[in-house]
Design a protein around this nucleic acid. Structure first.
Lengths: 206, 206, 206, 206
DNA sequence: AATGAATGAGACTTCATTCAT
DNA sequence: AATGAATGAAGTCTCATTCAT
């Protein structure tokens, strides 16, 4: 009864989010209009305001949805693992896959938080959650003596940033193949960069 | 006589570009209005159109100016060097310094070329020039046997992308200090990643 | 249901067209602004863009509407007639009446097609249709031996032009009375000019 | 001394007028900008304001110049003639020639006086002068019994208007040849229309 | 709940005219 | 006298949001 109505409402909300995502793959964040979204989602423009307070909220929701999914993937495929090295590999792989499904994210991330965009705290929370998840992986690796002992925060931020860089490479220069040797090479480089006894032999020997 | 007038005109042009650059540090590319620029540059809005045909041209000019400067730096500080490893270090350092002076660039780069923005070919040319310069550095390193022998194009794109990642790190997490150990660490990581006999021992041994 | 909404929309569209027409009686085509139209039609400026893509389209529509009406009048009151002489008289009378209701037309016609105005082909089509209708009248008159045998195209264009001249007279010098002897005199002059055996006795005798 | 300066000033004034005239042949009256005129006349835009108070004055001057010339022609070639019929023929011929040299005039005339254009009284005076000249020709013809005896004012306005019509034909459909039989035919039609004993035999006999 | 219609606010751009040298 | 520079006012068009049914 009530439940079904509620479920339907949620379904329509989702379909608007989906339409927006599709648009994000086609054109730049700020040049997407409510008209675009209305057309793509097959709702009247005014109807969208029954599901989202305003454009900013809608956009927040779109981004949140993505990051939520990603956070869940990280939890599932990285945190439970015993081997820290493999966990990091998986983490990077998740970033790669992610970019594959949401190629517009790097563009948008680069401009968020930007002035005038009232990201709800939820979005920022999610970003921090992802960071904490990554930190947890690294910390475990350090505890087990697998990873180098640099400052945890620094290391986390670095991995995060390097990933963005690689991901930018992926989204710009590679079309589809996540299994290509280039991917493997990049993953290796990052992993080695933080594993004791591989790329940091020199450091160690000092 | 003529010369002075010309110089003054150029000076005013520059000051508009400068004002725009400052705005780019404050807000996103597409939400900067001609009114903003007018106010910041202390001209009447209409006056700006005496120096730039339209908003796009002005923006193009701002970007071009930056990339030109950067290309020149690369030429000066990387190409003449004998040691390829040092050249690469310098290249990365230039990227770092650059981001220091133009923190808005990564945000903008991530969204350019974006739909609807008619970047003049000059902008694209400059981007390609930078790529060619980097390729030249790498090629020399490969020729001398210093760098790993992966495909030149792949390697170039990778360095470019990784730099963007690091640079994104810098712009997000570090305030000012280019001399911090973190910077050094990042540079090392990249450099090692492409130098024979260090991070790629394993590859070599294969 | 659907039909009423549709009808109402059409009604509002018409009312904008009407407001524009009224303005055309007050000031020149190019100095009418969208603000003028908005005020006259009692819509917000932005609303007008829901009914017409842009100013040019609106203007085209206004012109087309007029010419369409005129073409229909010609069809009704000239083509079915048996006597060619009467048909021509009616044609001229229609031009007179037309100018009475749309005094701005000669001013606008004189400047259309003018540079920068993207008249849709529809407008040009209508103009040509009117020409063809007139030609048909004349041709019949020639076939029946009533009209002089000059080249059809030349004759058509001439009548068209002379009408413009007379109409310009009407719109400049006469206030309202279409039944004045002057009108009759002008109609006679034109009609005689093209009827065999009246003004062209001399030609005939050659 | 002074005189030469004065003469030079006049010369430059003329050259601006000439440039404007040329532009009038290229594009519509209201879309000609002071920038256009500046470029065409090889003056700086600001300089034009040293010769003409504003755009309207400049335009007035251009039109006046033309009409002045035409009035002079009429005086020379029509008023001195003894035969009224020939005088009218010449008058029409002058209109034709005029349109040949200033094809933009009909377009402009059709929109003058238009709102917002402050034609100085001089322009209107000239227009009235032309009218008086034509009236004088007709009056003489009537006095001598050559022309029909309709009301002088009406007849004058008619001729004026019909000329505009023919001239519109000329400017639209004929390229260059003023000597074509069509021209002759049109002149004949008008002349006959107002000469006793030709096209108006029927009237007379009534 | 859904939506066609309406709109205020604001974006970019143009242009006649004035200012300052 | 000549002109490069500056600009207020105005024009066209867009868009997120609200209103009314």
């Amino acid at each position: 009864m009530r439940a079904r109505v509620e479920r339907e409402r949620e379904f329509r909300r989702e379909s608007i989010i989906k339409a927006t995502e599709e648009l994000l793959n086609e054109k730049a964040f700020e040049s997407i209009t409510m008209d675009d979204i209305a057309e793509k989602s097959d709702f009247a423009k005014a109807s969208i305001y029954q599901y989202f307070k305003n454009k900013d909220e809608l956009m927040s929701e779109v981004f949140s949805k993505c990051m939520e999914t990603q956070c869940n993937s990280i939890k599932e495929r990285c945190l439970s693992l015993t081997a820290p090295e493999q966990a990091i590999r998986n983490y990077i792989m998740i970033e790669f896959e992610f970019i594959h499904q949401h190629p517009w994210v790097p563009k948008v991330s680069a401009t968020i938080p930007f002035e005038g965009f009232n990201a709800e705290s939820r979005l920022i929370d999610l970003y921090n959650q992802k960071k904490r998840l990554l930190a947890a992986i690294i910390q475990r690796g350090q505890a087990e003596g697998t990873f180098i002992e640099s400052d945890l925060v620094v290391l986390t931020n670095m991995i995060l940033s390097v990933s963005i860089g690689f991901v930018s490479y992926i989204s710009t220069h590679m079309s589809a193949d996540l299994k290509s040797p280039v991917t493997e090479m990049m993953i290796s480089t990052i992993t080695k960069g933080m594993t004791r006894g591989s790329s940091n032999e020199s450091n160690r020997s000092k």
